[in-house]
């Protein structure tokens, strides 16, 4: 006994697996509260300054935003595949799926960076003292919208970067890990990754699709 559990506290792997999953779900609940609080800030501002927010939202790039959503949903799909293959012991396929997931994460970040660059050029990025040159109506509250947009999108991006780093670290130490611990890690990072995906699923319509 003990060989297949990682924590000394458990004597049965099945029990440990249940504990792992539960812990990840609690962590996700905790993260949901974090994003929930910021969404609440957004919601209240949106109620107060609806027209300004709608007008400002039109300055975001809908094609790039949609493309990014597709990329992220695809990465979730490949993450689910990585888990499925791992479960079946098909470790080569699992590894490739994981790598694809991380790669898609990087693509997402690349597209996001391109969007940010465009927005900086257009002068609608009210951060770091960059001059804010917005030509729509009610620039004060449009600035508020862009501030929240940058805050929320960047917080999401930071979560995604964290996920990519963890996947990369897992792949580096892949060969030295036992199969059960590989599976344990894929399961944990998978839950996290899907959650980050869910966050974007909400952010996308909220930020990009206000009364288009």
């Amino acid at each position: 006994m003990g060989a297949s559990t990682e924590s000394v506290a458990f004597d049965k792997p099945a029990r440990e697996q249940a504990a792992d999953t539960f812990a990840m779900w609690i962590f996700i609940g905790s993260e949901a509260m974090l994003f929930g609080a910021i969404l609440l800030v957004f919601l209240i501002a949106r109620i107060s300054y609806g027209p300004a927010f709608a007008a400002a939202s039109h300055h975001l790039s809908l094609p790039l935003g949609t493309l990014n959503t597709v990329v992220l949903i695809t990465s979730s799909f490949s993450m689910a595949l990585a888990h499925l293959f791992g479960n079946r012991g098909r470790w080569r396929a699992s590894t490739w799926s994981l790598a694809a997931t991380a790669l898609l994460g990087l693509v997402f970040l690349g597209i996001k960076a391109a969007e940010y660059t465009m927005e900086f050029r257009e002068g609608i990025a009210p951060v770091l003292g960059v001059p804010f040159t917005y030509d729509g109506p009610d620039p004060v509250h449009a600035e508020f919208f862009f501030g929240l947009y940058f805050a929320m999108a960047s917080l999401h991006a930071v979560h995604l970067i964290g996920g990519i780093v963890v996947i990369a670290g897992m792949l580096v130490m892949w060969s030295s890990a036992t199969q059960s611990s590989r599976l344990r890690r894929v399961r944990a990072i998978g839950l996290y990754w899907h959650f980050v995906d869910i966050v974007w699923v909400f952010l996308f319509p909220i930020l990009y699709l206000i009364n288009r």
Binding site: S76, A80, L191, H194, V201, P205, L209
Partner: peptide, 18 residues
């Protein structure tokens, strides 16, 4: 409608992927 669809997507990801 956007929020309903987002909630549906989240529910699908949670039940099927997670």
């Amino acid at each position: 409608l956007n929020l309903v669809i987002a909630a549906a997507k989240a529910a699908i990801i949670a039940t099927m992927f997670m």
